[in-house]
Design a binder for these strands. Structure first.
Lengths: 155, 155, 155, 155
DNA sequence: TATGAATGAGGGTTCATTCAT
DNA sequence: CATGAATGAACCCTCATTCAT
């Protein structure tokens, strides 16, 4: 809280005037990101399934580049046991939204294996996010993006 | 530290007799896991490239099931900025080991795109680990394992 | 202050427009109760000393039943060191008023021991107030009132 | 807590090593006083009822003089709503102990009115404590003590 | 090797008060 | 007369670390 207040050049009292607790701030940031994800995943429709996948990938990569800081914070908070607990519902909602919308697409491609394929698809994306945001210093994001688009184009 | 000492039924003084700091304990746990990864990745050799990939996948999934607790701790510690910093070198080493050994295999399959393909391969695995360990409550780990083996069998 | 403002459905700014500080509000409440005590103790006069005592007792008990909330607040504030300090003068005034008027009565009954008897008389009353307001859940207030009236009737 | 630690010339950490919370310290002080009261009230036995009352009075007054500080703290804490709550059980126990032992004596003196007389007796004592500890600066404690002993001698 | 009393900087939070509007 | 955003000192408490034994 001290860091937040110093960075924002604002008193602790003011922050606590607008938020009930530190966790509430985290929750707000988190739910904001969730809203963004919702709108991204819901926007892709009517298109060919493959094109929907491609646009999800594209949206994902652009978010990754533009919102790196926020996404990194989201990762931090998600895997920190203390904060993770009270974000549980948000995490659940977020993953089920994403999984749901992806599965809706894979149902049209390969209904039998759509569930497994969906899990693998989002695992691939999250793995990339993880590596880009928190593991590798020089991550070949663009090359991977192209390769991924290619891969799903020829599905 | 209090929790650690209570769980180990040991005094604080004793723990500080063996470790200089809490971070050193974390570092030990972390480097132990790194050693495990090293031996796993170095053991796969002489085989056909595809078979090497398959055995990496198999090793990965079995580690995921047998060492869930440790891996979860590793994830926690990796994404917690405070601990992340002093583990930086370990994380670097670990990822370069894994990437290197995977790239060695992909070099034999598709030399031109081997780097990108390697990144994608380990992203897929780490994404799965992430989801299994920290996101989904009911993760279809086995189905995904089979699908993944199938996918790389037919490379 | 937040509670006071919410309960009064009024902004903090307005309260601070009328009172300089939280303590001033407390002081006002306190001095109001003191005024009530003054008028009660001064009204009993010309009567027989014993009857004056009886009417003090009666007034005391009816106030106890009708103003429990306010009296309890007065007790709280009197024994809270932080607030006690700035109410010191009020407390002094209040106790000397009460003691004075009671002593005026006991002077007519037993001049030699009037001071001690007065102290004992008001100690008895305050002890009852204390127990009724802050100690016992089921206090036999009426039985005690009758017993007390009886006791001082036969003085 | 800062004050306590400064006064005791001890760090906060140490205090929290021995007590779980500030309230636990208060509770300890409070229950210690309760124990003292218990031993005082239980010690008076086998004697004539009147003598038992007298010895309760004497014990009470000597405690008042010797432990003024502690008793004052007890009063503060008892009437402070925030602390009062978690001391509720102690307050209940304490008052029922005192009331019980006094009623046991009055049963032998005037069985019909023993309950009311007991309440009045302890009200008188608590009123005196209140005035001595928290209201009057120059309280004629000894004169009142004598008068009270006299009063109950001739019961 | 083993203990646990002791430290103190830092944590999140509260709340009476101020002030621009 | 009326608002409520903004302040900051103080609050209780935690926890990695030290050190005398």
């Amino acid at each position: 809280m001290t860091d937040i207040c110093n960075t924002a050049n604002v008193s602790k009292g003011l922050v606590y005037h607008h938020f009930q607790s530190k966790n509430e701030i985290l929750e707000k940031i988190f739910s904001d990101t969730t809203e963004q994800m919702k709108s991204i995943s819901s926007s892709a429709s009517k298109e060919q399934p493959v094109n929907q996948l491609l646009s999800i990938i594209e949206g994902f990569f652009s978010q990754l580049e533009n919102d790196a800081k926020t996404l990194r914070l989201n990762l931090n908070v998600m895997f920190q046991p203390s904060t993770r607990e009270f974000l549980h519902d948000h995490i659940k909602e977020r993953s089920s939204i994403l999984l749901g919308s992806v599965k809706g697409i894979f149902d049209q491609i390969d209904e039998q294996r759509s569930s497994t394929l969906s899990f693998m698809f989002i695992a691939e994306l999250d793995g990339i996010a993880l590596h880009y945001l928190s593991v590798f210093d020089d991550y070949p994001l663009h090359a991977i993006r192209e390769q991924l688009l290619l891969k799903y184009q020829n599905l």
